[in-house]
């Protein structure tokens, strides 16, 4: 029998090529120096929801735990993961500062509708269906980490210092470990067929929404200047 983690990978594999293609368009863009700060701002608007989303999920799990073995099983995973994910929004601000941009810029900007769609759907599913849905979202965002070749190549292409890529560099290593932990959680949780579907739906939505959020970066008309722009 196919494990939950394998099934989820097969499902997401149907849409991931599109997200990977949009990713390549960004990293291969002749406007990469202008777009990289825009990308960091967009990513900040997404990453700053990481811990609050899991806090909401674990709170909902605790509310349901008495009558719901899946919710009960997910409390330790979310609790541990909240600790591991603290402060990543600050890394993005430091990346912006390192390339000569204002680190407060992401806090001033109105978050785009595409990021609200990516993140907001998760609040809805956690609150109005089941907190396990968040596992599909995490599987997408954590399941496709930056390649080890990415940062050296982006440094070469942009001329920005290594300190401007800390978020990508750290996640290239961190997300592999976290992805394995999530896959174990998926396989060990007593998921019902309905929750397997819900997690799949959440993952597929997240790929599409992440793709749209990345596409908005490609369409951006940069307002920021960098140290070497």
């Amino acid at each position: 029998m196919t494990r939950h983690s394998q099934a989820l990978r097969a499902k997401t594999g149907l849409l991931l090529p599109q997200l990977m293609a949009t990713t390549r368009r960004l990293w291969n863009s002749p406007r990469l120096n202008e777009l990289y700060p825009e990308y960091l701002c967009m990513l900040h608007s997404s990453i700053r929801s990481t811990v609050p989303l899991m806090e909401r999920a674990v709170a909902r799990c605790r509310e349901l735990a008495d009558d719901d073995p899946v919710a009960q099983a997910l409390v330790p995973y979310f609790t541990r993961h909240i600790r591991e994910e603290q402060g990543h929004d600050e890394w993005l601000r430091q990346d912006l500062a390192a390339i000569g941009c204002d680190p407060d810029e992401p806090l001033r900007r109105l978050p785009t509708a595409s990021v609200a769609n990516l993140v907001g759907a998760q609040y809805y599913w956690i609150q109005h269906y089941h907190p396990a849905c968040l596992l599909g979202h995490i599987a997408v965002l954590e399941g496709n980490p930056p390649s080890t070749e990415l940062v050296p190549e982006l440094m070469r292409r942009t001329g920005f210092p290594r300190t401007g890529f800390r978020t990508l560099e750290r996640h290239a290593a961190l997300d592999i470990k976290h992805r394995d932990e999530l896959m174990r959680t998926l396989d060990e949780a007593p998921l019902t067929p309905e929750l397997v579907t819900a997690i799949g739906l959440s993952a597929l939505h997240s790929i599409d929404a992440a793709n749209n959020a990345l596409a908005t970066v490609l369409d951006a008309h940069p307002a920021m200047t960098t140290a070497n722009a």
Binding site: A21, R24, N28, Y39, D175
Partner: peptide, 26 residues
């Protein structure tokens, strides 16, 4: 999603610089 993406298909450099993957992180 596929129907929407197919109707908006533009020129995408498939297979170019495959090692440069990963943009969204958690």
């Amino acid at each position: 999603i596929k129907q929407r993406l197919d109707s908006a298909e533009d020129v995408v450099p498939h297979g170019v610089d495959a090692p440069l993957s990963g943009a969204f992180v958690w």
